[in-house]
């Protein structure tokens, strides 16, 4: 049990390190590879009176913003993330579920880190990109815990705050005219499930494939 928690932490840390490392490596790419530069890292001219300054925007500015409906991380969630390689991107989401937003009699705040991979070479299916990945979700509501409160015997329950949520889906990308804040908009749909549901799918005959999936819909804004 604790081993599994450690592995989860390790995975999380690795993901974060990877994101920082890839970003740092990307910071000053060789000039001849200028085509690889995303718009964000292009020096931007800023004219103050007669002086023109060239500003290289910080790598900390995200590559994309997302708004998502449903998908286990709340009624609505907003996220920001980076395209860390040609085929892999990571997005940090915050989602909320409450009485007014989603009709739940109790409020749930969810923070999640979604790791998404493009399944095919970019452009193979035109503007449609099939994706799959796994999201790490932290749920905050009543009676959820990472570490058991002191009044329980050791290992009485497995932690119930962090869940892994595998997903697959596709995004349809619409390119916008150059010079805008956003270079393109993506509209995506995803089927996701939860580690706990997959476990019962494996363990029982009753829980079948049609009982574990749910649908999320969202919009991605790609920054220029």
């Amino acid at each position: 049990m604790f081993m599994r928690n450690r592995l989860l932490y390790l995975f999380l840390l690795l993901t974060l390190f990877a994101s920082v490392a890839v970003k740092a490596a990307d910071r000053y790419p060789p000039d001849d590879d200028a085509a690889r530069l995303t718009g964000l890292r292009k020096p931007r001219p800023l004219i103050i009176r007669e002086d023109t300054l060239h500003i290289r925007p910080s790598w900390i500015i995200p590559d994309h913003l997302k708004v998502q409906y449903a998908g286990l991380i709340g009624f609505m969630s907003v996220g920001a993330g980076y395209d860390l390689s040609k085929r892999y991107d990571a997005t940090l989401f915050y989602g909320v579920l409450s009485n007014h937003l989603g009709g739940s009699s109790v409020r749930v705040h969810t923070v999640s880190l979604k790791n998404s991979w493009d399944l095919f070479k970019p452009g193979l299916l035109g503007n449609v990109t099939p994706k799959a990945g796994v999201s790490i979700n932290w749920g905050n509501t009543n009676n959820t815990f990472r570490r058991l409160p002191a009044h329980y015997p050791e290992q009485y329950y497995f932690q119930n705050k962090v869940h892994l949520a595998p997903f697959w889906g596709a995004e349809w990308q619409i390119h916008l005219p150059a010079g805008r804040t956003f270079k393109s908009i993506g509209i995506y749909g995803e089927m996701s499930t939860l580690d706990a549901y997959v476990l019962e799918l494996v363990r029982t005959k009753y829980v079948s494939l049609d009982k574990i999936w749910n649908l999320a819909l969202g919009i991605t804004l790609y920054m220029d």
Binding site: V106, T141, N214
Partner: peptide, 11 residues
């Protein structure tokens, strides 16, 4: 799929 929209496992 049943319950195709699921906002949270903690709903």
């Amino acid at each position: 799929c049943e319950n195709i929209i699921e906002y949270s496992p903690y709903k």
